[in-house]
Write a protein that binds this DNA or RNA. Structure first.
Lengths: 355, 355
DNA sequence: GTGAAAGCGCTAACAG
DNA sequence: CTGTTAGCGCTTTCAC
């Protein structure tokens, strides 16, 4: 492996000149240098440069779990824009564990130009951890509460949750349950509150037994769904606040032999990659996963170039994807609004019907 | 951020001693050094160490696409064992593009202690690219043809494909189609050949129209399935050689209104994470995804510690997961073997039935 | 066991 | 525009 010294010697210039050439500064001997570099197959050492200049051409990415299709998409998006700029991605899984997350951030921060972090939950340490990182950080998906001062790329959870509520109400449901995520996280709290607000405004039951707060994980969704369907008066519709919990809920329903949407409608937040092939095809609030990663990376790039400044908050739109897991309640247990089939009109600012 | 110099000064020793302490060598002043380090919150710079010693505490991982749940699982597995040893993961997506792959390998090789690569296909350049990497490389999933000399962690494609064939034959199918992956890749070729071998041995039709060679991608699977189902005499069963193509095939079938398994049985290689919730739940050849990543990382660790030596080839077992997308053919168009329902017995060395 | 010294390969003043 | 000169923070001889 040749070094900048070799190039300098063969091109008969100083290493400083080669270095300048490499960084795009105008240089007289550029033609010769270019040739020598090509001939030698010289590639500058990112490590040496990093030590000297602090630039590492690397972004750190910390997510709870790449295995979650949402985060896989995000990582892909980040890698898309990073790779395009010759920047590499250093990946860590926090497993929603605060200690692991802090360790990762600390660890990565010394060898990256910036980080993208999907915080486990919004514990009070996050700002501390981030501040100590010493590199720009953009918060992903879970950001608002903690991160006024940090750049963030989130999704319009509030509109999403309201779309969900309106869709269910519009179908005639009144006894609607929700399986929420942790209220200590932005998406957990926002989806929870917005959904219940809209439900209240729509005149639905707001019995506390219909509100389950879980953990964004499959097992949590499964357990919550089981409890809800075991109520003496079970809900006719179910809003599940993320993809993993939706999978759990669907498994619970299947295990209990509850039919969807005949006995209970199910609406999930976050599409599942196979959402359309499920039994039944799942109605969901969908969001641009890969794009969310791409935007996060773009924001990070900008921040690195621009230096300190007022925090940027990007909020991406979501849309309701109506498939077949939601339908009118079979028999409305509360018997309100005997709406005429086909006549219900609801505003769905962003609604897509697949196929 | 404090440096080793600060520690040395405060502990009244030389930097060399601190360095030795850090690398676990016995040192007289270890107690004092430990205290100073704790007090300062000192963390050695991986970058500086990397420049000097060549050890980077980093593995490079190049996969076609993290968005593919199989690779997401693999990456997770790698990160599991790496993280446990304080090693970080530098991730790149090759998108099955040979140039991009070569660039990534070249790029990463200068800043990692070793790499795990899932080659796009087994083009002749792979060995060249790898050799030039200058760091240990373990080949993942796609390895044998090219990689006799390189460590590899693969899966028992041959047994898997045979299990698939036997299962379908056992159900009474004789007109069985296959959607294979590229024959230039190990898994593509192995699954293809083993499946056809077993089919031939079982007395099935081996019409060439029933053999589609695609590309391991969703669109390819979709197109192939469409063609197969449009044959004047369509197959009664379909073996699809990987997860993405299976998704494509299922979409095609759905679009054509072909019912599974009533009109055609479908058996996929690689489970889909929602496989059990699909309509119908999918029968698949399943393999240990995360574990495959973990094993690859373990092999890499060993190789790094052990230095050069005979290549290690790990082959992980697969199993047949019988769900509901496979069934007896409705009416056997060829009318061979009018087998009595329930009396067919076949050996399935590794068969699991969910639920 | 320990310290002094010499770099790893590069960039960033600083003079020209 | 260019070369000289210092290091970035660490590890590794080489003596002791």
């Amino acid at each position: 492996m040749s070094t900048i010294q070799d190039v300098a010697r063969l091109a008969a210039v100083s290493t400083a000149t080669v270095s300048r050439y490499l960084s795009g500064e105008p240089v007289r001997a550029s033609a010769r240098i270019r040739e020598v570099i090509a001939e030698l197959g010289y590639r500058p050492s990112v490590v040496a440069r990093g030590l000297r200049s602090g630039r590492h051409d690397t972004f750190g990415v910390v997510v709870p779990d790449v295995t979650n299709p949402f985060f896989a998409g995000v990582v892909r998006g980040i890698e898309n824009v990073a790779g395009q700029r010759g920047v590499r991605v250093l990946l860590g899984n926090s497993d929603e564990d605060l200690t692991r997350e802090a360790t990762l951030v600390d660890d990565l921060s010394r060898r990256v130009d910036g980080m993208i972090l999907a915080p486990a939950t919004e514990h009070d340490d996050v700002p501390h951890v981030l501040a100590s990182a010493g590199v720009p950080v953009v918060l992903l998906d879970r950001a608002v509460q903690v991160g006024g001062r940090f750049d963030s790329v989130t999704v319009d959870n509030i509109v999403g949750a309201k779309l969900a509520a309106r869709h269910l109400l519009g179908l005639g449901h009144r006894r609607i349950a929700t399986i929420s995520g942790p209220l200590t996280s932005t998406p957990g709290r926002e989806r929870h509150e917005a959904f219940l607000d809209e439900l209240g405004a729509g005149g639905a039951d707001l019995e506390s037994a219909l509100v389950e707060v879980a953990d964004f994980r499959e097992a949590g969704g499964r357990a919550a769904a089981s409890r809800l369907l075991s109520l003496t008066q079970p809900p006719t519709a179910l809003f599940v606040a993320n993809n993993l919990m939706t999978v759990g809920a669907l498994k619970a329903l299947r295990a209990l032999g509850v039919r969807v949407p005949e006995e209970v409608s199910v609406l999930g937040f976050d599409d599942l990659d196979l959402g359309a092939l499920l039994d039944p095809p799942l109605t969901v609030i969908d969001r641009p996963t890969v794009e969310q990663g791409e935007r996060a990376a773009t924001v990070l790039v900008d921040r690195i170039n621009a230096g300190a400044g007022p925090a940027v908050h990007v909020v991406l739109p979501v849309q309701l994807l109506v498939r077949q897991s939601t339908a009118r309640p079979r028999r409305d247990p509360v018997k309100i609004i005997p709406s005429t089939p086909g006549s219900t009109t609801h505003e769905h600012p962003t609604v897509n019907t697949e196929q």
